[in-house]
Computed example of a mutant assay.
Amino acid sequence: MTHPRRTFALTASAAALALTLAACGSSGMAGMDMPRTSGSPAAPGTAMPGMDMSAPETDGLSDTLDGYRLTGLPATLPADRDSAVSFRITAPDGNPVTGYTPEQTEPLHFYAVRSDLTGFQHLHPTLAADGTWTAPLTAPQPGTWRFFTTFTPSSGPGQGKGYVLSSTVTVPGTAPASPTAPTAPTAPAPASPALTATTPDGYTVTAATPGGGELMAGMPHQLTITVSKDGKPVTDLQPYLETYAHLTAFRAQDLAFAHLHPQTQVTGDHGGPELTFQAELPKPGAWRLFLQFRTDDTLHTAALTLDAKG
């Protein structure tokens, strides 16, 4: 495009460069799934294997939609202790769903996030023959959590449709303070070249809208992410879930869910420095985005906050 890039309107926390990155070694980030080898790279001009091209029609804030239901999650979990969380997805006829169409290599994605948008965990549970899923949740801190499941049934009335279902879980105790948790902006932030922050281990992640203009809720936008390290473009991004980065968003006001779909084709272990995503946030407000990318067999997670206009 010939138009200059313009940036998202940032929340107060983003304007203060409230972006964090954790590098996950063999132990991984708390609750983070370990890196795995992706499938074959997508051929140029084709959709990525396993990609669900139909966007979910919900913000994910219900445990039931179209007769599909998320069941079996506990009401409470112990604080600061690893837990095996089990649940089922039941179909409109009441039976457990056992057949799923993979989305980015996985039949189901499980996310955990605390109400202050801390403690993000992205897991890939295991499925038993009776339809029971089990996710290894890592040591949640006290507070109110919301657990999300994203999936596409491979048969039945919801065949081929992407669903997001969620439920809240309480972790008893005194919740630790989170001074950097994003809140709704009280005034527009001043314009800047891009939302950028440099991480302690040298990675710099920049987010911008190449098409110009503000990010409007309910409208599709192209979001460009650029990754660099020590002032040099990063070109050794490794495939992760059949893409070079995975991007998930949660709305600060109510934890509404949005998955931003990658558009960059995978061509081996040399991705970057620029990645593109289709960003369509369903509601206006402050959104917390979690970007996961992989280098040197290490999974990193960057968290940034932006504002979607109504």
Results as ranks from 00 to 15, higher is better:
2 T>V: 13
2 T>I: 11
3 H>T: 15
4 P>R: 10
6 R>Y: 12
7 T>A: 12
11 T>M: 10
12 A>V: 09
13 S>L: 11
17 L>P: 00
19 L>E: 10
21 L>A: 13
23 A>P: 07
26 S>G: 12
26 S>L: 14
28 G>M: 11
34 M>F: 14
36 R>E: 14
40 S>C: 12
41 P>A: 07
41 P>D: 07
48 M>K: 08
54 S>Y: 10
56 P>N: 03
58 T>P: 00
59 D>R: 01
60 G>Q: 04
60 G>R: 05
62 S>D: 09
62 S>Q: 11
63 D>Y: 01
64 T>M: 13
68 Y>V: 01
69 R>I: 09
70 L>Q: 04
70 L>V: 05
71 T>F: 04
73 L>K: 00
74 P>N: 03
75 A>M: 00
76 T>I: 01
78 P>D: 02
78 P>R: 01
79 A>F: 02
80 D>H: 11
80 D>K: 10
87 F>I: 02
93 D>F: 03
95 N>Y: 06
95 N>M: 12
96 P>M: 05
100 Y>E: 10
100 Y>P: 08
105 T>M: 15
105 T>L: 15
106 E>D: 14
107 P>G: 02
114 R>Q: 11
114 R>I: 06
117 L>V: 06
119 G>H: 04
121 Q>Y: 06
122 H>I: 04
123 L>P: 02
129 A>T: 14
132 T>Q: 09
138 T>K: 11
143 G>Y: 08
145 W>Q: 07
146 R>E: 12
148 F>C: 01
149 T>P: 00
155 S>C: 09
156 G>M: 02
160 G>V: 04
161 K>W: 08
161 K>G: 01
162 G>V: 04
164 V>H: 00
165 L>Y: 01
174 T>R: 14
176 P>G: 08
176 P>A: 07
178 S>M: 06
180 T>D: 14
181 A>K: 04
181 A>N: 05
184 A>P: 00
184 A>I: 09
185 P>A: 06
186 T>I: 12
187 A>W: 03
189 A>H: 02
194 A>W: 03
195 L>V: 01
197 A>F: 05
198 T>V: 05
198 T>D: 07
199 T>P: 00
200 P>F: 03
201 D>C: 05
204 T>F: 05
205 V>I: 05
208 A>L: 11
208 A>Y: 05
210 P>K: 01
210 P>L: 04
211 G>D: 15
217 A>I: 03
219 M>R: 14
224 T>N: 12
226 T>R: 09
227 V>M: 03
234 V>F: 02
238 Q>D: 07
240 Y>K: 09
243 T>N: 13
245 A>E: 09
248 T>A: 04
249 A>C: 11
254 D>M: 02
261 H>V: 12
262 P>E: 12
263 Q>M: 15
263 Q>L: 15
263 Q>S: 13
264 T>I: 11
266 V>L: 09
272 G>I: 00
272 G>E: 06
276 T>G: 11
276 T>Y: 09
277 F>T: 08
277 F>I: 09
279 A>L: 15
279 A>H: 10
282 P>D: 03
285 G>M: 04
285 G>E: 03
286 A>L: 07
289 L>S: 10
293 F>S: 08
295 T>Q: 10
297 D>K: 08
297 D>F: 04
298 T>G: 02
304 L>R: 08
304 L>S: 10
309 K>C: 08
310 G>N: 13
